[in-house]
């Protein structure tokens, strides 16, 4: 029983990082209607930024978290301005090609500068023990960090003027423009928030994993799967889908087959979509 509980907690922790990345992706899809496939690579840049700021710069981990989120938010805005805005109004699949182009550029660049995988020390290196579970403290930080960010994001969108404007654009772009909302500014803001979330996920996860140029390409596949399970543009869907995928993976490794766990996770997605073609929470068509 404690083994099952153990896998459940790990599944939630895996899900936490997925949620943070998927939330940004679904926001971007909702507002800008683009498949931002390079989101995972911005996450990867976030992890390298942490290495630069914390390991090379010697700055405290928690301050580094803020710095990385801010820096990557700026990066996200630049990407939106340079790559995606010129493509506005073009077919959906064209933005996908641009995203692949961006992926190739970022990955090649990072590997050219630093070909070796890096590791980042944990801010507090202890292992917790409770109820038969062994868990590194950092995993708890990931779980709590995700919850805090989800709550903050919800508060921002529901309680502030800017947040409501984002929701308005997501629901009806033309209508929002009519009532005087600056759609360009909202797009930039959305990208800033989404990439800051990805940076937070990267910074929280980096001490548990190793930092490598291809760390984003696996994550982005899963994040897309989550966004689609939940329904494109649906924040609720991204949260539920993220935790769901994390738990499915952890359980598949434990009880089915570790080598085929992705097969299992992706098959679940296909079944869900075959039954509900627009996701669990009815996203956009």
């Amino acid at each position: 029983m404690s083994f099952f509980f153990n896998q459940l907690v790990i599944g939630i922790q895996l899900g936490s990082q997925y949620v943070m990345v998927a939330l940004g992706l679904t926001l971007i899809f909702g507002i800008l209607d683009i498949s931002h496939f390079a989101h995972g690579h911005l996450y990867m840049i976030g992890a390298y930024l942490l290495y630069i700021v914390m390991v090379l710069g010697g700055i405290n981990y928690w301050i580094a978290l803020i710095i990385c989120m801010a820096a990557l938010a700026v990066g996200g805005v630049v990407v939106e301005r340079l790559v995606y805005r010129p493509l506005r109004g073009q077919p959906h699949i064209n933005t996908f090609i641009a995203a692949i182009g961006l992926i190739l550029v970022l990955e090649t660049l990072v590997r050219g500068i630093q070909p070796k995988a890096l590791s980042v020390p944990k801010p507090i290196d202890t292992t917790l023990q409770f109820a038969g579970i062994n868990m590194e403290l950092q995993r708890l930080f990931v779980i709590i960090g995700a919850v805090v960010l989800i709550v903050l994001l919800q508060l921002f969108i529901k309680r502030t003027r800017l947040g409501t404007a984002i929701e308005a654009v997501a629901q009806d772009r033309e209508g929002a423009a009519l009532v005087g909302i600056n759609v360009n500014r909202i797009s930039a803001l959305t990208f800033a928030i989404a990439t800051a979330l990805a940076a937070a996920a990267a910074v929280l996860m980096a001490p548990l994993a190793f930092v490598s140029p291809e760390m984003g390409s696996v994550l982005i596949l899963k994040a897309f799967v989550i966004v689609v399970i939940g329904g494109l543009g649906s924040m609720k869907g991204a949260i539920v889908g993220g935790y769901l995928l994390g738990i499915i993976e952890a359980m598949a490794i434990a009880y089915i087959s570790s080598a085929y766990k992705d097969v299992f996770a992706f098959a679940v997605l296909i079944i869900i979509l075959a039954i509900r073609p627009t996701g669990l929470f009815r996203g956009r068509d």
Binding site: A209, S212, E249, S258
Partner: peptide
């Protein structure tokens, strides 16, 4: 116990190791 993992794509091996 057997829980082979893809070393080329995974970046967190905890669920494999706990198993």
């Amino acid at each position: 116990a057997k829980a082979p993992a893809s070393y080329y794509t995974e970046s967190d091996f905890t669920p494999y190791l706990t198993t």
